[in-house]
Amino acid sequence: MANKESTFTNMVLTLFLVTLAAATTLGFIYELTKEPIAEAKLRKKNIAIQKVVPDFTNEPNAEAYDVAVEGDTLTLYPARKDGKLVGTAVAAFTEKGYSGLIRVMVGFNANGTINNISVLQHQETPGLGDKIEKGKSDWSRQFNGKNPEDFQLQVRKDGGDVDAITAATISSRAYCDAVEKAYKAFQKGGLQ
């Protein structure tokens, strides 16, 4: 089938040319998709912020700032309406999930109560742990309107005030951990 002989120069040359062509094409496509990828990520973030804080008129993403909590760095997005701070969205994460990383966006009202929470990323078990998602069950609504000051962000088994998801205590615990982290960051650096 192959017409060319398998001499050393032939082989090296072919492989080199093929790899070169591949690298050039990929570099080109990389440049082409770089912006849409960044846009898609930004859009996702903006939608998450919109979901968790009250109506705002500013651009929270442009005013984002970092706060260090217990060795991790969390990003806070202040939401303002007509110049007045109405809430803060905190992007938090935990690695204690049943299948590792869970990333959430927690929205606090200006007075420190939780307005709403949105899960950005998780790999929890379908049908069990994935009930932390809004679309899958009403479980996460129990946080809305609560102030972590007097609402212990721990599952009842551990002495807190959160009802764990049946058969998914680990996922519930991890979720609480992420929200707790967000609250700490909010306490430390929010209300600016």
Binding site: M1, A2, E5, S6, T14, V18, A22, T25, L26
Partner: peptide, 24 residues
């Protein structure tokens, strides 16, 4: 490109081609 590829590096070449499209 089948006729331009020396027989012995056939598989590596195919893999590079496939990997490029996968990355795309």
């Amino acid at each position: 490109i089948k006729n331009l590829i020396p027989g012995k590096v056939r598989i590596p070449t195919f893999i590079v081609v496939i990997a490029s499209f996968v990355t795309m």
